[in-house]
Design a protein around this nucleic acid. Structure first.
Lengths: 350, 350
DNA sequence: CTGTTAGCGCCTTCAG
DNA sequence: CTGAAGGCGCTAACAG
């Protein structure tokens, strides 16, 4: 029992294969009667064209690939949601390539995608110049989301500006001893957004005459935050390069009995869903929207239409994790602290 | 500048295409010298075989599809992580099909996947009998994760038992007026795990002589929880069919000024990452592990090897969201309540 | 409008 | 061990 092919349909309908192909692809016109007969034959035989054959013949797979660090960054998943929706609406498939660096790199070695995908979206990973060249040689259409490259359409936010906004918010609250917590990506030096956020942040602090102290600038999550808190002269506020790190910092604060925001203000970046639950103040960027927009652009670029990158807007979202600067060890502060940390410790465990 | 094909390599190496194909597929033996020459030609030309051509020729795509409600259920993403890892290690691609029901159904209409995938994993969505038949007719290998079907290898947990465990935990804490919050999936009647969790839960309560009151059994998240709390005789504990719903319930409690766990104990199901941050007591099941195991089974099944489903273990994870039953309106309870809810309200906003 | 035919790039007998 | 040739299922000229 062979699978039914276009030839079977043609025979059943009493026409040539080309005609069947034509009604399948709604290409040049087919007489209404013929068309109906073909359609009936298709239904009768429950025929379904072979994607592989079509891909081989046309050179297009109707599939787009997405490379990204899916499972280490919640923000990526939210972006993917937008991609998935858009791509599905356009009738395209989605191939996922998660990335330990090796896999990502393989994906960028464009020839590896021959006959697999028509377009490639890279989220939070910018290819090197060499990879870009390789991609272009292979004529793979590429769009970057949350990553920039001079010769590739890129969509994302102004991370420097975001850093500056965070600095402003904290400064406006009266904080002066402010720390920075970087994303802890030892193996991915090209994840550049954190670096840019930090640049803007530093600039913002410096402009206000409160430059970032070197010992207040760390990289990592919970442990780094704990070290910060253990300092003789600990910071009263911290800007984390991502919500994930920010939440880890809040966790560390709870564990150390440091009340947030009374003795430590915490601000993050991204505004992932988790930030809502955690009550985290953060610099919000469009996540799902960036994915959707990126997908639209990719789809358009794949038709040959020239597309240009876009900057998306940022917005400060104030929740409860930042508050005005307070002098240490005020009586009231202490009482609140005890109740609160006791409370959170009861609920939150790692 | 045409893309380089197997013929180019053959010419470059001074051999026939068949030989190139042989070294590519490590199939029958090739003399060492010839083999080396071919390999060199491949490198020299930076040749990369066309996946489409290979798929058409062999009938196998080296791609597996995953259908699942990716973006509405955090648990699915964690499962996917295991799938991704396993599948990548085996050198397979991953195609994602998110599902508004329409897309899922299309995927199940097996013929639609001809020439696209070699195997299909369905997470948290069980196909109907008819779909199973269709799948079998099309000879698509299928494995179910978190879903059961008599004639398909299925892997998951004993949801009924999980429900029973939740009941036991709450009863052991002294609660008697206990509510159930269902997942709010109006459009997906086949998402059966919630139903089974509830069955086990009801059975557990009934066995202890504290049967589930009809008015304490609702479906939905925050709003349903709020209704529960507004009852004249509100429950002192609630079992939610998933962590997501449980966290929504905690949120509703905070908003209503009801302290958790002092006046309301909340227990969830799944143990997603978020549960840790939320300090949620929950019935934990292997998430990433289930994905990995499912992928392994699928890969094996695709070779023709018969595989059998597996039940994974459940475990009660106590965090801070459940506590002993307390009589209402005790003085101490009230004080704690005020501080706490004031506090959480400050931090958590929706 | 519609049928015929030549590939798309690779795998796989089948001879040599 | 290796080369030649047919075919996987479909699309896309090119004739009619």
């Amino acid at each position: 029992m062979r699978r039914t092919t276009i030839a079977d349909v043609a025979a059943e309908a009493g026409v040539g294969v080309a005609t069947v192909s034509r009604v399948l692809n709604a290409s040049s016109s087919v007489r209404e009667g013929t068309r109906r007969r073909v359609l009936e034959a298709i239904v009768a035989l429950d025929y379904q064209p072979s994607a592989a054959a079509r891909a081989l013949s046309t050179g297009r797979t109707h599939t787009i690939g997405v490379v990204a660090p899916f499972f280490t960054r919640p923000a990526v998943i939210e972006r993917l949601r937008g991609v998935s929706r858009t791509v599905a609406e356009a009738g395209y498939q989605l191939i996922l390539v998660d990335g330990e660096p090796a896999a990502r790199r393989r994906m960028f070695r464009a020839r590896a995608l021959h006959g697999r995908i028509d377009g490639l979206m890279s989220i939070s990973i910018a290819p090197t110049d060499e990879e870009v060249r390789s991609l272009r040689d292979a004529r793979v259409t590429v769009v970057l989301v949350d990553g920039w490259h001079g010769s590739l359409p890129s969509i994302g936010v102004d991370d420097r500006e975001g850093g500056r906004m965070a600095a402003e918010h904290l400064l406006a609250l009266g904080h002066r001893r402010i720390a920075f917590l970087d994303d802890c990506e030892q193996d991915e030096p090209r994840l550049a957004s954190s670096a840019r956020r930090r640049e803007g942040f530093e600039a913002g602090l410096a402009a206000a005459g409160a430059p970032l102290a070197p010992e207040l600038c760390r990289s990592g999550g919970r442990r780094a935050a704990a070290e910060l808190l253990a300092l003789a002269d600990p910071p009263t506020a911290v800007f984390a390069a991502s919500d994930t790190v920010a939440i880890a910092a809040m966790d560390a604060a709870d564990a150390a009995g440091v009340p947030v925001p009374d003795r430590l203000s915490v601000i993050g970046f991204d505004d992932v869903e988790l930030a809502t639950y955690a009550g985290l103040t953060t610099i919000a960027q469009p996540l799902e929207g960036s994915g959707a927009l990126g997908a639209e652009m990719l789809l358009r670029a794949m038709t040959g239409e020239p597309v240009e990158g876009r900057r998306l807007p940022l917005e400060l979202v104030e929740r409860g994790s930042t508050g005005p600067f307070r002098r240490r060890a005020s009586c009231e502060g202490n009482r609140t602290h005890d109740v609160k940390s006791e409370l959170r410790r009861r609920r939150v465990r790692t």
